[in-house]
Amino acid sequence: MNKLLSTACLALGGTAVFLSVGVTTASADWPTKDVHLVVPYAPGGTTDVLSRRVADLLQDALGANVIVENRPGAGSTVGTGRLARGGRDADHTLLMASPGHTIGAAIYPDLPYDPVEDFVFIQNVIDIPNVMVVPTSSPYQSVEEFIEAAREENMAFSHSGVGSSIHMSGELFKTLTGSNMTAVPFAGSGAALPALLGGDVDVSFENMPTVYSHIQSGDLRALAVTSQERSPYLPDVPTLSEIGVDNLDQFVTTAWFGLIAHNSFPEEGYDAMQAALDEVMEREEFLDFAEQLGAEPGQVEGEAFKQFVIDDLARWQEVAEQAGIRQ
């Protein structure tokens, strides 16, 4: 057996040498090896598809391999927790953060990391607005009408799971307007759609890409978008903040996606990444991709991105508290 083991080790040694002379093409100080992009969600979701697209483009811009790693679990907190632990590859590991980062921190107890202090915030890559939609058969033509009705009777809103940005947007709307609303959970947006189309639920705050085609085909009516500015894809639809009812002017949320890294991420890596991302975000392919999602390129980077995350976190903590979601 000893003999066998040593043979095994020999063979393995050989493989290791073979592996270590792999790809090292970059000439700058960073990256010096493959870059890992952690996606804290399962393959196939929006975050995953988007990350793979970005990774693909980053690969050219950085001149190094960018390997996507899915580490799903408990919102996004399992993957994020892993990044927070650091380790030997932390200087070459990025994570695609999303509202799950802040909402997760707001609703999960005793996270093993600090969602702000443990990370370096590189850049917000893409922003997807949520759209407040009702079925076409719904009597409500505007947000005002809806709120008026929702104060009289109970409204059901569908969402794609506890702690999703769709769920939290609904809860935020409920708190800001004082409406009677019941959250009806579904396993993902795909499962939630039929209930909305069929009129089982009254309203939803869905992500733009999920409902855009249904708005176009007239099956759903968009009452408002949740972003700061009107969406270029739905120019006639007002933003919730411009409607100016009650406290709705505070209602600005988007499904944001941005790259973050562990605290120990090197300075040169940070600079290289910003340069690469600036390049990526100007590429035709990237802009096309964003358009297909009904999304817009991210606005903030560095410190501003960090501040954005801090504000987002504070808001969701408040909503989670009021809605009683925090356990």
Partner: peptide, 13 residues
């Protein structure tokens, strides 16, 4: 790789 080899050899034995 290493754990795979080790466990497989163990089971073979």
């Amino acid at each position: 790789i290493l754990s795979g080899v080790l466990a497989t050899v163990l089971l073979f034995l």
